[in-house]
Write a protein that binds this DNA or RNA. Structure first.
Lengths: 242, 242
DNA sequence: CGTCTAATTGAGCCCGTTCAAGCAATGTGG
DNA sequence: CCACATTGCTTGAACGGGCTCAATTAGACG
């Protein structure tokens, strides 16, 4: 295995059940290889035939769907350790696109690997389902935000959630986290217009709740911002249990 | 197995891979039993300890989350064949409630059954993951709607989506489908106010696009409504493939 | 016949939208 | 080295979709 494999759900992570020697070999068998992608490139294209899926090893990405008339909804932001392209394989149709937000490195698997996992590596398969369930949870949270929260609350919620996700995946250093996103992307994630996002954001900035410059995010008072965003304190354990 | 078991993902469904004799026995072993719930009752309580999960055999239900201040977001509506309470077990925390919309019958499983499935019945485990992935897909679609569509488009989208779901689960008869929901529930699902939902709905009614009376829904022109709601024609196959 | 819940309709306001202009940083070609 | 285009951020002004408040109606139930 190469660099960063410790965050791959199919690899050996202390947070997860350790794979056996045999499992490792089987994984390596179906592991097509690693892939580097530049910022701004499409990792997954809307409507494409689902053949492979990926583990995001380094960098950040964005998953979105575009309506016929051009309106776009960002579904979520992806962090190291996240899976990409599993849903399309399960459902047989790629209904969203994934774009790299920074230089990204991916671990590439063939779709046949999925069944191999279920057949021969139940712990890996369980792990995989756990990831899908977690993503479902995040989508639900986003839906709550877009549906019920005000613009100010939504922004606050988004920053806190992203911050917490960033910490879980080890992207926060010195109280700073890379967040290479345009305001337009954030607006599309929250169902707001660019203009209003900007104005609401500048208010949060003037209150010293958010510092976001040059693609780097800082939250001087994460808990205060969480209160603004009505973020419930539910913590998702990294470790799943049976 | 008792009535309606053919729709249970853990049972023998022609759309799915048939379970072996041994699988059937193992499922029955962990199947706690059947449960009947009246309309309006809570099947799953927010914050409860996740111990069991269910298959919805008959009737309809609603999954929602409530914010501290009372605002409520309906996450989705549940149809026969859907799983209930799997996400909480996987993630260790029940962050949403599920309420019966009609008299409901459920098949009850113990949470230990999940691991049994991964360990001994890979086809069932795969099936289960497929269900989670499908639910993730629907949540994504809902997020797109709430985030990008206008009230009119949202309503149209919702009716068409529910209609299609209803047809897949065999709830449509004579061009009619039971839809035992208050306007308030629909409003909370779409992030709209009750008043605006009502006014938009009455417009759709006057255009003969929607007929919804006494808990029964009819769509005289499903395709026209789909055009109003910008529903993409992507069809999720009932049959998954490997 | 009073009470309760759900649907309906009107009036007025506001949050978030669209339109529009300006600015700063970066890049590109002559 | 400058002219010019491009991309993203910022800000002002005005409109409007959807909100809140409020009152009425209709049906179900005791």
């Amino acid at each position: 295995m190469t660099k960063n494999c410790e965050i791959c759900p199919f690899s050996n992570n202390p947070a997860f059940v350790a794979p056996s020697k045999q499992e490792c070999e089987t994984v390596n068998l179906h592991r097509i290889g690693e892939m580097q992608v530049e910022a701004g490139c499409e990792i997954l294209a809307e409507g494409s035939d689902p053949r492979r899926f990926f583990t995001l090893l380094e960098g950040q990405a964005m998953r979105y769907h575009t309506l016929e008339d051009g309106r776009r909804q960002v579904l979520n932001f992806l962090f190291p350790g996240d899976l990409i392209g599993l849903e399309p394989i399960m459902l047989g149709e790629t209904s969203h696109a994934v774009e790299a937000l920074s230089p990204v490195s991916l671990c590439v698997f063939d779709r046949t690997q999925i069944w191999q996992m279920f057949a021969k590596m139940p712990e890996r398969a369980f792990m995989l389902t756990w990831q899908v369930a977690r993503e479902e949870h995040f989508l639900g949270q986003a839906l709550i935000s877009v549906g019920q929260r005000s613009a100010r609350e939504s922004l606050a919620w988004a920053f806190v959630s992203l911050w917490d996700r960033g910490q879980q995946s080890g992207m926060v250093e010195d109280g700073k986290m890379p967040f290479p996103v345009r305001q337009q992307d954030l607006a599309d994630a929250l169902g707001l217009s660019l203009v209003h996002t900007n104005k609401t954001l500048s208010r949060l900035r003037s209150e010293d709740l958010v510092v976001w410059r040059d693609g780097v995010l800082q939250l001087p008072d994460r808990d205060a911002l969480a209160r603004v965003g009505l973020v419930d304190s539910t913590v998702i354990k990294k470790r799943f249990y049976l």
